[in-house]
Structures are given as C-alpha cells and as structure tokens.
Amino acid sequence: MKNINWKKELKLLPGYIIVAIWVLFTAVMLSWILGASFSTSKEIFSGSIFKFETGIHWENYVTAWQVQNVSVFFGNSLLYSVVACFGVLAISAPAAYVLSRWKFTGGRTLRIGLVIAMSVPIIMVIMPIYSIVVRLGIKGRVLLMLLYIMMRVPYTTIYLLDFFATLSKSYEEAAYLDGCSAPNTFLRIMLPLVQPAVVTVTIFNFMSVWNEFFMALIFTSSESMTPVGVGLLNIINSMKYTGNYGGMFAAVIIVFLPTFLLYIFMSEKIIAGVTGGGVKG
C-alpha cells in the first residue's frame, strides 16, 4: 500500500467534496427508490420506507410485472433491442467493410450521407415515415423493429468503418492466395478482427433502443407492442386511479435495471466508446 500524501490530499479536498456531494445525491435517490419499491403507499407517505415495519413487499414487483403489464413492455423492449442490434449489424458491417476497403462510384456520397444522417433530428423524418407506414399498413412489433434497425444504421456504419480502415490489407491478400472468396474473407477473417468495435457499438445500439421514447410514443398503437418507456408513462398516468405507489416504483426499478447492470459491468468500455467515437475536438 502506498503512503497517503496528506498534504496533496488536503489540497484536493474541495474537489472531493464537490464530486462526493453529486454522487451522494445520486446514491440517495436510487436507494430511496429501491426502498420505496418494497414499501406500501402508506409507508411511502409517512416517510418510513427503510424501516420495513410491515415486511418487504415483494408483491409490488409481482403487481408491476403481472397486473401493470410490465412483463409485456419488458419483453417488447428486449425484443426490439436484440433484433435491432443484430439487424443493424447485418446491414452496417458489410457496408462499413466495403466503404473502408475500396473506392467506388457513389461510395463517397454514401459515406457523407451517413455522416449527415447521424445528426438529422428525428422530427425531420417522423412525419413522412408515419405516412409511409400507414399507407403500407405495417403494424405491430415488426414496425418498431424495422424503424429501430434503420435508425441505427448511419451511426453503426460510420463507427465500424473507422475500425475496418485500421486493418492491414495483408489479411485479405493471404486469404485470396489460399482461395478464400471475398465475401467469405469478410465473414470469417475481417469481421472477427473488429470484434471489440462490434461489441462496443452493439452496447450503444442496445441502450439507445432500450431508452428510445419519441418514435415509440408515436407508433405504439396497442398495449401488446408497447416498450418500457411508453409503458412506464402509461403506468404513471393511471396512478391517479390506482394509487399504487409501491408498484410504480417497482416498475421504475425494472425499467432502470437492464441498462444499469450493463453499465456496472461495462462502464469502462462504454465510457471509452463515448469519447472514442465521433467526439473529438
């Protein structure tokens, strides 16, 4: 163990206080919500949530999961996120590969188009998309799956493109000499080589789809296709009638947990991904 340099630490004290207050506030908020999710509405209002005088109310989670339909919302969000992650990879990885490898007609335009599309606000596309969707009569879960896949293509393609560009061409030359076809070379050699980038971009796609709200609100037409964000909003709006605060806080915890757990295990990778990608001064 290193010796603590007290003089240095003392100088840093104001800094410690600032970040500690911020983190403490976050911790108080999260633990209170967790405590409330195991309490009755009465306990929440009388401010005695951490005493658990009437026991730990697991049934809040059961109510939220079954009665308030969180199981449906959760399943939908999981489906959208997982399908979108795979779908977008199937579209973006091949495109990123050929864009990084060869100059071809329209390649530059496609690349610039994708970069611009990354910063197009969703409000500029939502109305025509709505119109197309209604005309074609696309409904239900498949609609949001398709939209989420297409929504993530520009970001994913551009992100992977930078990584493919760093790979040496000697891999392909060796594969060619060994008689491996070009598409096979991509699938079996090049794609596994960018695996770390694929993992990072997939985490971001997952979180982005899990937390998406605007399109979900516009296109959700039935309970059976509602994802967690809109579902939680519906639960809160019906609180006036149910008055079940414990159940609502349980729902909040269920919605909050997946990306939070992902973050607990992968925070280093996620943080490196935030600043490693497009963000450069």
Binding site: S92, V98, L99, F104, G107, L110, I129, M150
Partner: peptide
C-alpha cells in the same frame, strides 16, 4: 487486391436503402 464489383454492390445496397428510406426521402 481485386475489386469485386458485385460484392461492393450487394454489401452497400442495404445501407444505401436505409439512408434513402429513413433519411433522404423523409427530409425532402
């Protein structure tokens, strides 16, 4: 490395379609 035109076409087509359907056409 040889340029494989068919592969370039089929590999970039889906993302081009996404770009056109989801972004270019709606913005216009």
């Amino acid at each position: 490395m040889k340029k494989n035109k068919a592969m370039i076409f089929w590999f970039s087509l889906p993302s081009l379609l996404c770009l056109l359907i989801m972004f270019v056409y709606p913005v216009c």
